[in-house]
Simulated assay, not measured.
Amino acid sequence: MLSMQVGGLFGFILLALDIWAIIKVIQSNAGAGVKTLWVLLIIFLPLLGLILWALLGPKG
């Protein structure tokens, strides 16, 4: 039962971070094509997309 609660908490935190990352991508100065690719990457690969965006994504 505890593992299910931990998994649910992890999923919720990941969802919140993904939403935050998508908002930051949209607010960035990157071109529309780059923004679209980052948003799709974050949506379809939530954990990997978030990590890659944090390391390589558009800044500012």
Rank of each mutant, 00 (worst) to 15 (best):
residue 38 W to V: 06
residue 2 L to Q: 13
residue 21 A to V: 05
residue 47 L to W: 09
residue 20 W to Q: 13
residue 26 I to V: 13
residue 60 G to Y: 07
residue 48 L to V: 15
residue 16 A to S: 14
residue 38 W to C: 04
residue 50 L to T: 04
residue 38 W to G: 02
residue 48 L to E: 11
residue 16 A to Q: 11
residue 53 W to K: 05
residue 5 Q to D: 14
residue 17 L to F: 08
residue 26 I to P: 01
residue 38 W to Y: 10
residue 32 A to V: 13
residue 30 A to C: 12
residue 20 W to E: 09
residue 10 F to I: 08
residue 2 L to K: 14
residue 34 V to K: 06
residue 49 G to N: 04
residue 7 G to T: 14
residue 2 L to S: 11
residue 23 I to V: 15
residue 20 W to M: 11
residue 3 S to V: 12
residue 4 M to G: 07
residue 10 F to V: 12
residue 22 I to Y: 00
residue 1 M to V: 03
residue 58 P to G: 02
residue 40 L to M: 11
residue 12 F to V: 08
residue 9 L to V: 10
residue 50 L to S: 06
residue 40 L to W: 05
residue 26 I to L: 07
residue 21 A to N: 03
residue 24 K to N: 08
residue 41 L to K: 06
residue 25 V to E: 01
residue 28 S to F: 13
residue 20 W to L: 11
residue 52 L to E: 08
residue 48 L to T: 12
residue 6 V to A: 08
residue 50 L to M: 03
residue 30 A to R: 14
residue 36 T to N: 09
residue 59 K to Q: 09
residue 56 L to I: 09
residue 12 F to K: 15
residue 15 L to W: 12
residue 38 W to S: 01
residue 57 G to S: 10
residue 11 G to E: 12
residue 45 L to W: 06
residue 11 G to D: 13
residue 7 G to R: 15
residue 38 W to D: 01
residue 58 P to I: 00
residue 47 L to D: 03
residue 28 S to C: 10
residue 19 I to S: 04
residue 44 F to D: 04
residue 14 L to G: 07
residue 24 K to F: 05
residue 3 S to N: 14
residue 2 L to V: 14
residue 47 L to M: 11
residue 4 M to W: 12
residue 52 L to H: 05
residue 17 L to T: 05
residue 10 F to P: 00
residue 21 A to D: 01
residue 28 S to R: 10
